[in-house]
């Protein structure tokens, strides 16, 4: 199972803390599309712009690494991987 954890505003807006997704190898974008289907709520527009780029202020980690250091939305995830989604707090 792949674990998808929702944090901060995404958790509140989607009323979802965590999803367990059964899937073989899949890329991040495809995984998140499956998550949308599973909870029947659209949220990709909160993460990506129309060109599919991450919206500044949004962060996606795969096993604790920012996907911008990996292959962005094409990063492959596998069983037992953990995907963390959130806009972190930017103020001080």
């Amino acid at each position: 199972m792949i674990t998808v954890d929702f944090y901060t505003t995404l958790r509140v807006e989607l009323k979802t803390r965590q999803l367990k997704m059964s899937s073989n190898e899949i890329d991040v974008l495809q995984l998140l599309e499956k998550c949308e289907e599973k909870i029947s709520k659209k949220f990709l527009h909160k993460l990506f712009d129309r060109d599919g780029k991450l919206i500044p202020g949004t962060m996606i980690l795969v096993n604790g690494k920012n996907i911008l250091h990996l292959k962005s939305t094409k990063t492959l995830v596998h069983a037992n991987d953990i995907v963390s989604l959130f806009p972190p707090g930017g103020g001080g």
């Binding site: 991450l54 500044p56 202020g57 962060m59 920012n66 911008l68 250091h69 972190p88 930017g90």
Partner: peptide
């Protein structure tokens, strides 16, 4: 590394 790609908020941050 953690916050790669993050930009400063353009608007007032609510806290």
């Amino acid at each position: 590394d953690i916050y790669r790609g993050m930009e400063n908020a353009k608007n007032f941050i609510s806290i």
